[in-house]
Nucleic acid binder design. Structure first.
Lengths: 124, 124, 124, 124
DNA sequence: GTGGTCTAGACCACT
DNA sequence: GTGGTCTAGACCACC
C-alpha cells in the first residue's frame, strides 16, 4: 500500500485516513512500534510537521499511543480497531447502496449483482 | 435531484455525469425533450457554453440527439441507457469491493454485511 | 435537373449558371422556345424580376435571343454553346487537378485513379 | 499554403479541412510538433478557442494527439493519413465526374480531355 | 511556455 | 423561442 496524497484536501487528514487503513488492514498490527515521524514523513513525501500532526490526531482518537522515550505504538485495544473497521465499512456500504439506489437498483438487486460478481470473479 | 458541482474537476464532466444519472434514473425519460441549454445552465448555475459542451459530449456518446431548431431529446435507444446503467453500477461495485477488501473483508463477508444491513433497514 | 438556389450568392448569377447547364446539357436545345419568365420564375421559386435579370444577362452573352412578340429562344449558334461547354469543363478540370495536386497526386496518378474509377464503376 | 477562411461556413470546420490538407500534403509531417494553439490561431486570424475546437475535433478523429504540457503532435499512424488522402481524393473525383457528366461528357471523354491537358501542360 | 477550462456576451439561422 | 458559433479575456496545472 503506497502513500497516495492529493492536494485538494488537508494533507494531515489524508495521512490519518491512510494510517487508519494500515492499522485496520494489519500493515501495522496491535502493539507494533511505528517508524519514526521523520521516516514516515519521508516515505509519504510530506513535511515531518504534517505527519506529526496526523499522528497526534490519531493519538487523540486513541488509535496510537506514545512512549516518550521509545516511540509510538499501535493501541492494544483491538476492540477499538475492530470498531473503526466496521465504522468505515459501514460508511462505504452506505455510500455504495445510496449510489446504487440512485441508479434504480433495489437492495435485493444489489445483493444479486454482488453475488454474481464474486462467484464469477476471484475472491482475494 | 439537485445540481451538485465541485470545483476540483472540469464542470462539464460533472454536468455530463449528473445528466447521465438523470437519464438513467428516469428524471428525463426516453424521447423526452430536455429543457433548453439556457435553462439547464441557469438551473445548474453554470455558463450556457459549459452546459452546451456537456450536452454536446453526451450527444457524441449517443445518449441524446439534437433537433437543431426545436431542442434536444433523450435517445430512444433504451438498450443504450440500460447498458450505461450497468456500466456505472459495475464501476460502483468494483470500487466498493476494492475498498472493503482493503479493510480486510472477504467477498463473502461483504455480502453478509449487505444482507444484514438491508434486512434491518428499509428496502426502498 | 431541379433548381437549386443558395442564399449566399446573388440569385440571378445562380440562375444564369443553371440555365447555362440546361442549355449545354440539352434540356433546352438549339432553337427551342423557353418557357415564359413567369413560368421559369415560378419553377425556380424566385421573383420574376430576378429571373428576368438572369435571362437578360444570358441574352447579353448571346446564348438566347428575344423575339419581341413570341418569346425567348436558345441561340442557334451551336459553336457558341459548344465553346461554353468546353470553357466550363476546362474550369472544372483545372479546379480538380489543382485540388488533386494539393493532395500530392501527379497528373499521371490522377489519370490512373480516374481510369480505375470508371472501369470498376458504371459509365452513365 | 495560406489560411483561407470564408464566413459562410463554421470557421472551425474550415480550419479542420485546411489542417487536414497540411497534414496530407506534408506541411506538417508524421510525428511533427504543431505550433501552439495561440500561434496557429494568430496565423489564421481566428480566436484561439476556435482553433482549439478545430484541433480537438482533429484529435477526436485520431489525426493528432495531445501531450498536455508540451504541445500537439501529428499522429504516427501513417496508414490513417494515407487513408484520409484517398478519401478526400475520392470525394474530389466524384464531384468532378458528376459535374462533367452533367455537362454531357462521358467518362471516356473526361479521360481524354485530362490526357490532352496534362500532355500539353506541365506535370508538376 | 503548453493545453484545458470557464465565463460573458454577442450574432446567426431556423421555425 | 431553439441550438450553433465565435470572440475576448481570464485562470489553472504542468514543466
Amino acid at each position: 500500500m503506497a502513500w497516495n496524497i492529493q492536494t485538494d484536501r488537508p494533507i494531515y487528514l489524508q495521512l490519518m485516513e491512510q494510517m487508519k487503513l494500515r492499522i485496520i488492514s494489519g500493515v501495522y498490527q496491535t502493539g507494533d512500534k511505528l517508524p519514526s515521524v521523520r521516516d514516515l514523513a519521508s516515505e509519504a513525501s510530506v513535511n515531518p510537521n504534517t505527519m506529526q500532526k496526523a499522528l497526534s490526531e490519531l493519538e487523540r482518537c486513541g488509535l496510537i499511543y506514545t512512549n516518550r522515550t521509545t516511540g509510538r505504538y499501535i493501541t492494544e485495544e483491538t476492540e477499538m480497531i475492530s470498531q473503526m473497521k466496521y465504522d468505515i465499512a459501514s460508511h462505504y456500504l452506505e455510500d455504495f447502496l445510496g449510489n446504487m439506489k440512485q441508479l434504480g437498483f433495489s437492495s435485493e438487486e444489489v445483493i444479486t449483482l454482488l453475488q454474481e460478481q464474486t462467484c464469477s470473479g476471484n475472491t482475494n
